[in-house]
Write a protein that binds this DNA or RNA. Structure first.
Length: 419
RNA sequence: UGGGCUAUCGCCAAGUGGUUAAGGCAUCGGACUUUGACUCCGACACCGGAGGUUCGAAUCCUCCUAGCCCAGCCA
């Protein structure tokens, strides 16, 4: 039992290179110590008036072994035990005992507790615990370009940079779940990483790849992010054709109805007036592409606004090239997806990227390294007739999305070798 | 000479005296393709440095270098 103040104990502890001094109360008798400790437990002292310490070695090179405090007085209300106790054990004393009592054999924790292992072992041994647990330390799982520290996450929430603690931009478990990352992907990701003692920074692309694997068999649908109007000049006005189309998830015979008409939307990125190079497998004037699951169309002309932006493509379609017709007289310049303009449904979509900019220096202030594109919200055009129980799907050529009551959330983008 | 720990490809990570030094991610080629996806082929490391021991070293020894953690009555 030590009557010294916190400040005195601190001063007596020495520092990294100089040994500490024994407390003047270090040699109290066992009886006196027991009586004092009982009184302490009874609440006869005020906070900080006395403390229980382990008598180890004030000159120990590991400062954790310089007579560490075991119990301190805190007349505090505990959320479980109420006011039953006014003394509380320190982590270094409670933790090894809890492990031993619970029959823990391997107690895993992070690297900064390596210096505490000697006390852990000391407590187990000196308390003569019948079961001997072992503490094993490992490195934290750090992720590149992400925020993980409680302090920083709290700051982000408080400053309203993100909405809540389960914001999908966070890589907390609840954040990942909210974003729609399947639990199997997390398991596989963790399994691939192992439990090393080295402290590296893992790239999140490893998780992304696991997510794509898990989601690879989800139904595929057509969704247009940035619509560009296409008008088929040789298609009758007013009629909407319905094409039966396989979902295209492997092993499934399910099909869906995909509308098609004179008025369509394609992705803005899928058109350039002139073919820029031989690798261009999309639409250009004079070129023919296949609209997936539908027909070949050929861009004949385009309409621009006064600023020169392309706002509409005038094209023709070839009825002979209908999907499934085994037409093979010509090869299209590529395959792009589309949506029928009059039946397409507008849907709110959210997409996420890393919270921090690439190669972020985490020692800089947060507001200097936040990625402004960590959250992007937009309205997309989606084909109709989606199943009501659709939880996940792949928007063809875009990515995997989670279907939620508030809209679509992108779980992970598709890979692309397009340059 | 305070103590504890780490160091294998751009990123993770196997490996514990004899292997062509696993594998994944990323990247770069190419095949296939009604998703520039998937899949499939192919390319991609003198093991932080210097010495030493050994027939043989990423693995053992010595020295060095770099990085991380520790001075709460926090966890």
């Amino acid at each position: 039992m030590d009557d010294s103040s916190a400040l005195t104990i601190k001063e007596q502890r020495g520092d990294l290179k100089t040994p500490g001094q024994n407390s003047p109360f270090r040699n109290r008798s066992i009886d006196e110590n027991i009586a004092l400790f009982k009184a302490m437990r009874e609440g006869q002292f005020t906070d900080g008036e006395k403390v229980l310490r382990a008598k180890i070695d004030m000159a120990h090179p590991n400062m954790n072994m310089r007579d560490p405090v075991l119990y301190r007085i805190q007349h505090a209300h505990h959320h479980r035990t109420g006011n039953a106790w006014c003394i509380y054990p320190m982590y270094d004393y409670a933790h090894p005992l809890e492990d031993a009592i619970e029959g823990i054999t391997h107690s895993l924790c992070t690297l900064e507790f390596e210096d505490h292992r000697p006390i852990y072992d000391w407590v187990v041994e000196h308390c003569e615990m019948p079961k001997v647990p072992r503490q094993i330390e490992f490195g934290k799982l750090r992720i590149k370009n992400e925020i993980q520290g409680k302090r920083f996450i709290n700051q982000l929430v408080t400053q309203k940079v993100i909405d809540e603690y389960d914001d999908p931009r966070l890589i907390t478990l609840s954040g990942l779940r909210n974003k729609g990352i399947p639990i199997q992907a997390i398991h596989q990701f963790i399994h691939a990483l192992g439990l090393p003692k080295s402290e590296g920074e893992t790239e999140l692309t490893m998780l992304d790849e696991e997510v794509r694997h898990v989601l690879s068999n989800t139904p595929r649908i057509h969704m247009i992010k940035n619509p560009l109007k296409v008008t088929l000049t040789n298609y009758p006005e007013g009629s909407v054709e319905t094409l039966e189309t396989k979902w295209f998830n492997e092993g499934s015979e399910d099909s869906r109805m995909l509308p098609f008409s004179k008025h369509l939307y394609i992705e803005k990125d899928d058109f350039l007036p002139e073919k820029p190079n031989k690798k261009w497998k999309r639409l250009s004037l004079g070129l023919e592409v296949r609209l997936m699951h539908a027909y070949f169309i050929k861009a004949e002309d385009m309409v621009c606004d006064k600023d020169g932006n392309v706002i509409e493509i005038l094209a023709t379609y070839d009825p002979a090239t209908k999907s499934g017709s085994d037409f093979d007289e010509r090869k299209p310049n590529g395959n792009i997806h589309f949506v029928e303009a009059t039946t397409a449904v507008k849907t709110v979509v959210e997409e996420y990227e890393s919270l921090l900019i690439d190669e972020a220096d985490k020692t800089l202030p947060l507001d200097e390294i936040l990625n402004p594109n960590a959250l992007i919200r937009y309205e997309a055009w989606v084909e109709p007739h989606l199943p009501e129980d659709l939880a996940y799907f792949q928007a063809i050529r875009l990515g995997f999305y989670q279907n939620t009551p508030s809209g679509f959330k992108r779980v992970v983008a598709l890979k692309s070798s397009f340059r």
